[in-house]
Design a protein around this nucleic acid. Structure first.
Length: 413
RNA sequence: CGGAGUGUGGUGUAACGGCUAACAUUCCUGUUUUGGGAACAGGCGACUCUGGGUUCGAAUCCCAGCACUCCGACCA
């Protein structure tokens, strides 16, 4: 994409109503736009990052056997009354609204009720199980206090996967596989080494649930890490679990962290309440055993910014960067540089390489500062100097290393 | 939801109760520049959050509302 066509602009100053680093940088660089407290729009660059994250998630969840669907944000009150969760006292983040005829509706903050009811139409026999379905969809949560930029907002995208298994054994097998998929997702997103499988409060069907917590000072949670096993314990269960659940190590390191994902055994809580059952080999009726598995792509994006940015701006891992290459031309008077840069841009586009081309008529310093702020992994400069040498200048955003390369070497990047 | 604070051009700030609300930046014009947010000149852009009140006079003081931020509580 030509940067001269990009309608967003960078800013030197962050808005005074943002304190969180993720929001400051993402707004300054033009990734997001704040609509109101806890409500953000995603702009061209931001949407590209979200889509990259969504792609990583889809790859892994599809490999797990997940089938993607899209459910509705509007929720049926009757359904939620059956599980006792319509009450604001039980679920205090409800946004509720009404039809013209005064029928009450809810805006979905989660979708256990809806998907459980939906599956009743398709699950009858043990032959129909297991089933794994997921969606990437907007959730609405009326948080008492939105904070931390896009890390805790009132409207946000969420990937929610639900598993439907015949029994606990079948559920456990999938649950363990999901842990591995989640690890893969956070590895691919570039925060794997600082993200810990964390034991947390489990609900009525398991002793513990599992969260994926990324260590960062911006985190709202406190976890206790076992370095040996690369797992952690959430402070909420610290009293009952003082050692590493894997190796009994008592020397755990306390850190602030952000919950970027969680997986939860729902047992038969929803299937019993909503009568999602099947008939087994012996002709007996059994309730389906469920699990749910969530990741917030927006929160993940914010977490990446919080943990990987530096004083100059954002540093995206290549896997989620809006573009792979930031091509910068420093035009000369005769137009030779611009002509060559145009051609190079077209060549890269034709080869399917994602490139943001800074073809604007501004000074080099401004282009470099913008480039650092936006945080694309590879910066390629074309100028008088580089043309005289017949080479390109390649700078790695993360390491800051600069090297001269042939144009052809760029194609392999 | 409890507590605290803040609302001034797009953005960041300034202005004792008293002149046409100032400065920087962004943006537009022009000239000179051209490898780390250039220089100069000119210009556009604000009912000072909203509604009341006090006063000869309110961005400034008072009341109410709304919005935003921070601390805490909450976070299947």
């Amino acid at each position: 994409m030509r940067q001269s066509q990009l309608f967003t602009k960078t800013r030197k100053d962050a808005p005074k109503d943002e304190v969180a680093k993720n929001a400051e940088l993402l707004i300054r660089a033009g990734y997001i736009h704040k609509e109101m407290a806890g409500v953000y729009s995603y702009l061209p660059l931001g949407l590209r990052v979200m889509n990259k994250i969504a792609t990583i998630i889809r790859q892994e969840i599809n490999a797990l056997g997940g089938q993607e669907i899209l459910m509705t944000a509007l929720q049926d009150k009757n359904l939620w009354e059956k599980t006792g969760r319509w009450s604001d006292k039980v679920l205090d983040v409800w946004f509720k609204t009404k039809l013209k005829n005064d029928t009450e509706l809810g805006l979905g903050s989660t979708h256990e009720e809806e998907i459980t009811a939906l599956m009743r139409d398709y699950v009858r026999s043990f032959r129909d199980l297991p089933v794994y379905a997921y969606q990437l969809q907007t959730k609405f949560r009326n948080e008492a206090r939105a904070k931390s930029g896009i890390m805790r907002s009132r409207e946000f995208l969420m990937k929610d996967l639900y598993s439907f298994s015949k029994d606990d054994a079948e559920h456990s097998v999938f649950y363990e596989k999901a842990k591995i998929s989640y690890k893969n997702i956070f590895n691919k997103a570039g925060i794997g080494e600082r993200t810990y499988l964390t034991y947390a409060a489990g609900g009525s069907f398991s002793k513990y649930s599992h969260e994926f917590q990324t260590v960062t000072p911006a985190g709202e949670d406190t976890i206790y890490i076992c370095e040996k096993c690369h797992v952690a314990v959430n402070e909420e269960i610290r009293d009952e679990q003082k050692t590493c659940p894997h190796c009994e190590n008592a020397d755990l390191k306390k850190e602030k962290a952000v919950e970027v994902g969680n997986i939860f055994n729902l047992g038969t809580k929803f299937s019993e309440a909503l009568d999602l059952a099947y008939v087994d080999e012996k002709g007996e009726k059994k309730f389906v055993v469920m699990g749910c598995y969530g990741i917030g792509p927006g929160r993940l994006m914010g977490t990446i910014v919080e943990s990987l940015s530096d004083e100059k701006g954002i540093v995206w891992p290549e896997s989620v960067a809006p573009f792979k290459i930031h091509l910068i031309s420093i035009p000369d008077k005769e137009g030779k540089v611009a002509h060559y840069a145009d051609k190079l841009y077209q060549t890269l586009v034709d080869k399917g390489i994602e490139v943001l081309y800074d073809d604007r008529d501004t000074r080099a310093g401004e282009k470099f500062a913008d480039s650092d702020l936006i945080g694309i992994p590879y910066r390629v400069v074309v100028s008088d100097k580089t043309m005289a040498e017949g080479k390109l200048e390649l700078k790695d955003r993360k390491s800051g290393t600069v090297e001269k390369i042939e144009e052809k070497e760029l194609y392999g990047k």
